[in-house]
């Protein structure tokens, strides 16, 4: 397990480094220095900026400075909102995004697991069809369309929930549901398949031959083994949810990081793009890292350092 954790850690660091480097040089491949695009920047400030961020130096030196600042957690200053640092904007925008993201993950995963288990146990029954329909919707209708439709019907027409904005829990409900659809679909179908796979395993026969009841077999022997393979898709799933916040926040007017990110794309706010990209990637890579470690913790075959993944 130690070796496994170590290996994962190295991967994580290298991945992050590659992302930072890639992002940095990609941003600098855009012609002109970042400040020329914003005409309103006074010359004095521009000079200060160039000096402060060493933009007058060769690219590789700038890169060095950027990395150094990054290690101190300094992501630079927004080019659009000159008095605000990228750190500040992230600090302000992250909590709403985090809440929406977390709520959708919890909703999607828990509901998906339950639905998958129930569907597998009632193969071709009512809940199996419900889960199949939800899975089809989640797999084929893009999240921004689900979000728009929910907003249109539930909020605008039926007026059950606020159309957009931020503040109360009610504001978070529709965005979370819209965002959780895809993961709900994936998890419920995978869990169903995984459960059906486990049901056919020999050790379930053994458990039955011991005289255990169906409930005991399901809880003690099936679910734990069936969940294991699901954990591996959590990484990509979380990535989907995080990127999904970009559009969801735009649609529901949530002052979250995703909205700022999309905004910074419209504004050509390069430091902001750079900063948020690195921030997002770090979050995602960390999530994937934790998922890997959790998997290792749950699966004794990895925990005890035998066998690969």
């Amino acid at each position: 397990m130690l070796r496994y954790t170590f290996e994962r850690t190295i991967y994580m660091i290298v991945t992050l480094w590659v992302i930072i480097t890639l992002t940095f040089f990609l941003m600098h491949m855009i012609p002109g220095d970042p400040f020329t695009s914003e005409k309103r920047v006074p010359e004095q400030i521009r000079q200060n900026m160039l000096a402060k961020y060493h933009l007058d130096k060769p690219l590789i030196v700038q890169y060095g400075y950027y990395l150094r600042n990054l290690l101190h957690g300094d992501l630079g200053i927004s080019l659009k909102y000159l008095n605000r640092s990228v750190n500040d904007i992230i600090k302000a925008g992250f909590p709403p995004s985090f809440q929406i993201g977390m709520q959708s993950i919890i909703l999607g995963v828990s509901l998906g697991l339950v639905l998958g288990i129930v569907a597998a146990l009632n193969r071709n029954g009512f809940w199996d069809y419900i889960s199949m329909i939800l899975a089809i919707i989640g797999r084929s209708v893009p999240n921004f369309i689900i979000a728009t439709l929910l907003q249109f019907w539930i909020a605008s027409k039926l007026r059950w929930l606020p159309v957009s904005g931020w503040g109360t829990f009610a504001h978070t409900i529709l965005p979370s549901i819209a965002l959780s659809f895809a993961s709900l679909a994936i998890i419920s179908r995978l869990m169903r398949a995984s459960m059906l796979d486990v049901i056919g395993q020999d050790y379930i026969k053994t458990a039955k031959a011991k005289g255990l009841s169906s409930t005991e077999i399901i809880w003690r022997h099936m679910i734990r083994n069936a969940i294991l393979p699901i954990i591996t898709v959590l990484g990509p799933l979380i990535a989907g949810i995080v990127t999904g916040t970009f559009v969801i926040e735009k649609i529901f007017g949530i002052p979250g990081l995703g909205k700022y990110f999309v905004q910074s794309i419209y504004n050509n706010d390069y430091t902001m793009i750079l900063g948020t990209t690195i921030f997002y990637s770090t979050i995602l890579v960390l999530m994937v890292f934790f998922v890997d470690i959790t998997y290792g913790l749950i699966d004794p075959r990895i925990r005890l350092g035998k066998g690969g993944r």
Binding site: D202, Y203, T206, A209, K210, R224, N225, D299, P300
Partner: peptide
């Protein structure tokens, strides 16, 4: 399990791995 015990062909898959 109590009055009739049973063992199966493949010991590799007959035990719960977790």
């Amino acid at each position: 399990g109590s009055e009739i015990g049973m063992i199966f062909q493949d010991p590799m898959t007959s035990l719960n791995p977790t």
